[in-house]
Design a protein around this nucleic acid. Structure first.
Length: 502
RNA sequence: GGGUGGUUAGCUCAGCCGGUAGAGCAGCGGACUUUUAAUCCGUUGGUCGCGAGUUCGAAUCUCGCACCACCUACCA
């Protein structure tokens, strides 16, 4: 501590100035930010443990408690006051009366502000109206809050401020807290699911000399000591498969990916994925596993597999549909017959009507994919696996034995959004090298998202990757689904926003 | 990248047929020993996002810029 006065912030105004004056007065009384108060109780535990006890029971055998929290409501009435404290678990009312705490403490309490952090000792009782309350024998100011909280009834509603000052959002809006508590529970449930199945959780590099594992534009940075360019990873895929080569036959990683692309309600530059790989399994196994995972997580975190997303009922309990691109297009647009959808010329004509650009090099599969994306993808409300993606756009997936033009791959769509992507891995090093060469050519031709030729990955495959199935699930989008959140920013604590002047 | 809407007190919002800015909450002063969005009386607080223009006069009309939201495009 020093005696130097902190320069007032640029947005200092009357309320802050008044609170700062109270802080200065508190400093004159002694330590203004004490750290010797130890709580013994959390609000929610007390509410739960004493839910059934009437006041006569509580008064007969007084329960001594020590709680701490932020004061969100205060009702001053002459010689007795009520306040509402909030801690990480919930809220608890406190009662501060002259005959129990004395005039000095009562006067001090009256000057404390909403937002101040208090420590309270006392006993439990129940008020006339039946609310469990701590009757204070002592109240202390533990941290002065210099900035006023948002309006106590409406909380913070301004979207920008909710994102930029998430801490204020979390203080005042229980719905926001709930989303992030659920997010934590969802991630924990996923982690447990894989650990219980014998998977090893690993951490692979976030900085890659060659960005790989997905088609996306990377962020670039520079390592000074090595004097080399490094890329923030766009996916952990290639590293995880190297671990399978190394003998870790079931691995998963839950971590951030970074993609230097647009920002929207469904895209944040850094987002969280789980990727998992299991040797001696294929993509059909993954689809079964994915259904089991999503059902289990929803049941565990929400207590149900029937959920609502933005007004649409979604049933995670039923077996998920499994359709090829052509089958999905036909199902939602029956005027396209399956025979038509197998004709490249027909597809080109249909795409021309939707204004979608096509290239002479687009094969049947790519044309189907484009038509799917142009008007079917967003209609897949209920969980649907789209299987057999074209080999041309799946450079890391194993080609189908029955038809090498497509891969043993699926994408899972729910509410019209891609939630997961998985496939039987391409483990033939010569095929993989050829696919990388094709990608490298596309990159030279100007495709910014085409992949690099990754020689170390080919070398790993040359040691022998067992037949393996691998999948990625977008955690943010899954959390959006399970918390009924309309924007990815609602499920990321500190979403990326443009710079602002504080 | 394109379109639409928003930006007024610390917060939630009115005011927008151009005439010098309002409410509730919070704050400040006062009353009140079971309140709970406490109540009652009094009261402080504003570069109306920023910059230009039209006008005797702009929160209000016009143009530009910034940021936010939504839609759209892009994006495995």
């Amino acid at each position: 501590m020093t005696d130097t006065i902190t320069p007032p912030p640029l947005d200092e105004h009357q309320i802050i100035a008044e609170r700062r004056a109270k802080l200065t007065a508190a400093r004159a009384q002694g330590q203004a930010y004490p750290n010797d108060f130890r709580r013994t109780d959390l609000a929610a535990d007390l509410q739960r443990d004493h839910a059934d006890q009437q006041n006569d029971v509580l008064e007969a055998a007084p329960r001594a408690v020590r709680i701490a929290g932020r004061m969100l409501l205060k009702r001053v009435m002459g010689k007795a006051c009520f306040g509402t404290l909030q801690d990480m678990s919930g809220r608890m009312q406190i009662y501060v009366a002259l005959d129990l705490v004395g005039a000095e403490t009562l006067d001090a309490f009256k000057r404390w502000d909403l937002g101040d952090l208090l420590g309270v000792e006392g006993t439990l009782f129940r008020t006339k109206t039946g609310e469990l309350t701590v009757k204070a024998t002592s109240v202390r100011l533990l941290s002065k809050s210099l900035r006023p909280l948002p309006e106590k009834f409406h909380g913070l509603t301004d979207q920008e401020q909710k994102y930029r000052q998430r801490y204020v959002d979390l203080i005042t809006n229980p719905e926001s807290r709930d989303v992030f508590v659920k997010r934590s529970q969802i991630v924990q449930a996923i982690r447990t699911f894989f650990v219980q199945r014998g998977y090893l959780e690993v951490e692979t590099p976030m900085m890659h000399p060659i960005p790989g594992g997905a088609a996306a534009k990377p962020f670039v940075t520079h390592h000074n000591a090595l004097d080399m360019e490094l890329y923030l990873r766009i996916a952990p895929e290639l590293y995880l498969k190297k671990l399978v080569v190394g003998g870790f036959e079931k691995v998963f990683e839950i971590n951030r990916n970074f993609r230097n692309e647009g920002i929207s309600t469904r895209h944040n530059p850094e987002f969280t994925m789980i990727e998992f790989y299991e040797a001696y399994q294929d993509y059909n196994y993954l689809m079964d596993l994915t259904e089991e995972l999503l059902r289990g997580v929803a049941q565990q975190v929400l207590g149900t597999t029937s959920i609502t997303y933005q007004g649409n009922a979604i049933d995670l309990g039923k077996p998920f549909d499994r359709l090829t691109l052509a089958q999905a297009i036909h199902q939602y647009h029956p005027h396209h017959s399956l025979a038509d959808l197998a004709q490249p010329d027909y597809l080109r004509a249909a795409l021309a009507k939707t204004g979608t650009e096509t290239y002479p090099t687009d094969g049947l599969g790519v044309l189907q994919l484009k038509l799917f994306e142009a008007g079917t993808e967003d209609k897949l409300m209920q969980p649907t696996f789209i299987v057999a993606h074209p080999t041309d756009v799946s450079p890391l997936a194993r080609a189908s034995d029955a038809d090498p033009a497509v891969t043993d791959r699926f994408e899972l769509f729910i509410t019209g959004r891609e939630i997961a992507n998985g496939f039987s891995e391409l483990n033939d090093p010569e095929d993989q090298a050829a696919r990388f060469t094709a990608q490298a050519k596309a990159k030279e031709a100007g495709d910014e998202e085409a992949m690099f030729f990754d020689a170390d990955y080919i070398r790993a495959l040359e040691y022998g990757l067992p037949p393996t199935a691998g999948e990625g699930i977008g955690i943010d989008r899954l959390v959006m689904l399970l918390t009924d959140s309309p924007s990815i920013r609602d499920v990321i604590l500190f979403p990326q926003l443009r710079n602002s002047d504080v």
